[in-house]
């Protein structure tokens, strides 16, 4: 493979990562299914981390396979995508929380209004 083609693999992998982040951002993230997916990803992450710690050459091998020169580079790219994913889920949660606070605050205010109306 010439260098251009080699970079294609990592480009696709990273783009898919960004796409997943975007999907998470637009999708409503509630329920047990979402939580289960997150837990599975977490376990996968733990296993992968452990594997790389035990055998660092795995990361370099994977990097080579993807057309990235070194394992550290792959790690950096992966981190960048993971960070965007984190931002996406965090943003979704923030929005949900904001909505809940709004509803709660409104319910309190409306209850106050009803009390004033009857007194």
């Amino acid at each position: 493979m010439d260098p251009q083609d080699q970079q294609l693999v990592i480009k696709i992998v990273l783009l898919v990562g960004v796409l997943i982040a975007t999907a998470l951002l637009t999708r409503s993230s509630s329920g047990a299914r979402h939580q289960a997916i997150r837990r599975v990803l977490l376990v996968l992450f733990a296993v992968a981390t452990a594997a790389v710690i035990i055998a660092p050459q795995l990361l370099s091998g994977l990097a080579q396979l993807m057309g990235v020169g070194r394992g550290t580079d792959l790690l950096l790219y992966g981190l960048a995508v993971a960070f965007v994913c984190f931002l996406a889920t965090y943003y979704g949660r923030m929005r949900m929380l904001n909505r809940q606070i709004t509803e709660l605050t409104r319910a309190l205010a409306l209850a106050e209004g009803r009390r004033e109306g009857t007194s």
Binding site: T105, L108, L110, G113, E116
Partner: peptide, 21 residues
């Protein structure tokens, strides 16, 4: 008649509360 938001939410939220009341 005064309804109070326990925390500042913004004018849109206040308007929605006022409308619902």
């Amino acid at each position: 008649t005064v309804l109070r938001h326990a925390t500042n939410l913004g004018q849109g939220a206040a308007l929605q509360t006022a409308i619902e009341h």
